[in-house]
Structures are given as structure tokens and as C-alpha cells.
Simulated scan of single mutants.
Amino acid sequence: MDRCTELSEFLRSRRARLRPEDVGLTPFGGRRRVPGLRREELAQVAGVSVAYYTRLEQGRGQNVSDAVLDAIAGALRLTEAERSHLVKLARPAARSGRGAARPQRVRPAVRNLLDTMDNVPAYVLGRRMDILAWNPLAAALLGDFAAVPAARRNMAWMIFLDPASRELYAEWDRKAADIVALLRTHAGSYPDDPALASLIGELSMKSEEFRRLWAAHDVRDKCYGVKKFHHPVVGGLTLNCETLLLPQDPDQSVVTYHAEPGSPSAESLRLLASWSLDAAGERREAARERQ
């Protein structure tokens, strides 16, 4: 991806969502040609010259200081995730696509941790939203990852290009927006990663929803919150999602789902775990009979 273009489009998209009155300015009369703040209005609130801000938005800013980025982030009302994204785009030398070429390996201790979480669906998410490891209950809830080709074992690919995801996620639109915002964050960290560029290109060609969400330039950190499912075996589930960063590898995180104790979803999750064990036993028995 072209960093200058990404920086320009990101800043423009953040300006477009604000009105003069949102930042304490009195709007001028007459029709505005573009939505949101004008460049000169944003520069006024940030306390920088219009010429300087214009150069930055056009990707021509050099050696941008922390103070200037903080001022612009404050004027645009950026979230912490958006501010971090702005810094990555304005200062690309900090990280490069070379790091993204390293193979992603899950430590054995992390795999063992997943296996001990008998009643909690959990999986490891890596760069580009790749699914690197999972426990049996995660496969029972979200789908048999082992049956998916490694190249397609990616959360973004599955959400937008696997029709089953639209049935599984009760709030698919919300899930899709979260996934694109997270993918944007990865793109800001590794703008030169060819595998990431290939994934984004494929999704853009094959999914109109992805193209629309990608054009919004929203970014987000790791997700948490309540997720709702329509599972083909146990029906409706309302689960709490938590994302745990792995300290030795900032590009990997453990995503977990759990139900409120005593809730109908907790009972459904227990039934799903039992069903998963029974299904695994049947597969092992079938394999023995084929030998």
C-alpha cells in the first residue's frame, strides 16, 4: 500500500466526520463544498499553519514531531487506536514489511494453555488476522479450522467470503466492521507486507461490503464485548469476548469467549462442549474402522 495515499485518505476521512461546532468553531454561512472540517479549520484548532497541515495531509510532511501529531490527533478527536495509526502512517520507518515476513509460530506453552480451557472457546490470532491455533471448543463454535486450507484460515477471509459466517454471527454487520478496522490496524503496522496486500486485494475484488468498509478508514485495537451467535447445533448464544495480548509477540493474541455463569448461553456452551467431545470420539472411531 502507498503510505502517502493512506495517510492522506485517513486524515481526510477523520476531518469529514467532524463539524465546526464539534471543535468549538462557529460555522461560516453558505454551502460547504465538502463534508466536515476544512483544512484551515483543522489547522486553526490544532495550532499549526494551514500550509504545514496541507503538506502533512498530502504525505509530504517530514520529521513530524510528537507535539504536532498530538495536536492534530486532539483536534480530530482521535481515539488511542486512531492516534497510533496516525503515528505509524506519518513515521513509517519505525516498522517495515520485512518483519511481517517472519513465520508466525505459536509457543508450545500457549498451545497447552488453549487445551486447558475446556469450557472456553479460544484461538490465537496472528498478523493479517490469521488463525494460528485453537482449542476444540473454538472449532465447535466457529467452524472446523482444521478442515480449512491454511491459506484460507484467516478471520477476515472467512467473515467476508465464507457464506456460513453470515448465518453464524447474529450481528454480522458489526462483526464485519470490527474485522476491517482491525485489518486496517495491521496494514498501518506493515504497509509493505505482500501477503497482507494480497489478502486485501482479494477481499476488495470479491466483496462489495469489504470495499465499502475499507474505504471508511476506521481503525480499532483488539476487540472485546458481547458477541451473539446463531449456532446450527445449540441455537442462540450470547458470549463475552476478550482479547489477551501475548507479551512475547505483540502480533499474536488469544481470543476467548465465555458465557455469564448460570445463563442459558452457559448451558448451551456446556452442551456444545459435550457435543464436540462426542463428535471427536465418533471421528476417532471411524478412523480406526478404516484402518
Rank of each mutant, 00 (worst) to 15 (best):
D2S: 09
R3H: 10
R3A: 11
C4P: 02
F10T: 03
L11S: 06
R17K: 14
R17Y: 04
R17H: 04
L18Q: 01
V23T: 06
P27W: 01
G36Y: 01
R38S: 03
E41V: 02
A46R: 07
G47I: 06
G47P: 03
T54D: 07
Q58S: 03
V64P: 03
D66L: 08
A67I: 10
V68G: 11
A73C: 09
A73L: 07
R77C: 11
L78K: 03
T79D: 11
E80N: 03
E80A: 13
E80F: 00
A81I: 00
L86E: 14
L86N: 07
L89Q: 01
A90F: 11
R91E: 04
A93G: 04
R98C: 08
A101E: 15
R107K: 14
P108Y: 12
V110A: 08
N112D: 15
T116E: 14
M117Y: 10
D118T: 15
N119P: 03
Y123H: 08
Y123K: 02
V124Y: 05
L125A: 00
G126Y: 08
M129A: 00
D130W: 00
N135K: 07
A140N: 13
D144E: 15
A151P: 08
M158W: 07
F160K: 10
L161I: 12
L168M: 12
E171I: 01
E171D: 15
D173G: 08
A176T: 00
A176S: 01
D178F: 07
T185E: 10
T185F: 05
T185Q: 14
A187T: 06
S189L: 01
A195W: 10
A197G: 07
S198Q: 13
M205G: 15
S207C: 14
R212V: 14
W214T: 10
A216M: 05
R220E: 00
G225E: 15
H230Y: 08
H231T: 15
P232H: 05
V233N: 04
L237C: 12
T238P: 04
T238G: 09
C241R: 09
C241P: 01
E242W: 13
L245E: 14
P247D: 12
P250F: 09
P250G: 11
D251S: 01
D251M: 02
V254D: 10
V255A: 00
V255D: 00
Y257V: 11
E260N: 14
E260T: 13
P261Q: 14
G262W: 13
S263K: 09
S263L: 13
L269F: 11
A273N: 06
A273H: 11
W275H: 13
W275M: 13
A279W: 09
A280K: 05
G281K: 11
G281R: 15
R283H: 10
R283P: 04
R283Q: 11
R284T: 04
E285W: 09
A286H: 15
